[in-house]
Design a protein around this nucleic acid. Sequence first.
DNA 1: TAATATACTTAAGATTCTTGGGTATAGCAA
DNA 2: TTGCTATACCCAAGAATCTTAAGTATATTA
Lengths: 110, 110
Amino acid sequence: MSNKKLYRGSLSTIILKLLGDNGRMYGYEITQKVKVLTEGELQITEGALYPALHKLEGDGYLKVEFEQVNNRMRKYYSLTEDGTTEVASKLSEMEQFIQTMQQLINPKLA
Amino acid sequence: MSNKKLYRGSLSTIILKLLGDNGRMYGYEITQKVKVLTEGELQITEGALYPALHKLEGDGYLKVEFEQVNNRMRKYYSLTEDGTTEVASKLSEMEQFIQTMQQLINPKLA
DNA sequence: TAATATACTTAAGATTCTTGGGTATAGCAA
DNA sequence: TTGCTATACCCAAGAATCTTAAGTATATTA
């Protein structure tokens, strides 16, 4: 989330949405996926990502599985049932936000 | 900005845009205008608004004129030259943000 | 006469980042 | 073989931006 104040508050939405689409992912994978999907626009720093994952887990939205791959540990995250509900909620909040900002920013057409 | 985390970071953009459209406004007027424009979706609290106005003024984007109306003081804010430049910059950041979020959130059509 | 609206200010605390550090393995280049 | 880059995780100090809640004061409405 380097340098872009507007992304504040949207990280948990992004994480939840990606996990909803991809089933399960590990932290590093999420940073890379976001970089590709946004064509480099959005770079999620590890200092932001990992605390966010821990919080979502603590809130009961994510569950964890450890796995050893190439002699390196990975923590795979996936949605809990509550997490699935939360994705839908977060996405509708995001859509509402975008709509509201467009009301404020775009010249009224009516 | 009650209860909506996503609005974090967007307040200065909103203020600058409104002042760009309306020439000059005072704080209380801004809160009311936003409420009307967003049909109640976004309520800017005074605890957020006034510090934000003071910061924008300190950054050189806004200038102030005092005026006495109905025996009550009003502080009218308007854009400086730098402020006018900043509006354009903030608006394009917001458009970029919205576009990026839609890339992340909407199913790819291509 | 008490509540609501108008109008501005500030301070403590919460949340969510950035920045910068740490640990460790693997692979590639000098 | 040595150092850089990539992979993969973690944490803490500080910054930025908000919420909450308080204070000051006048005008209007119930």
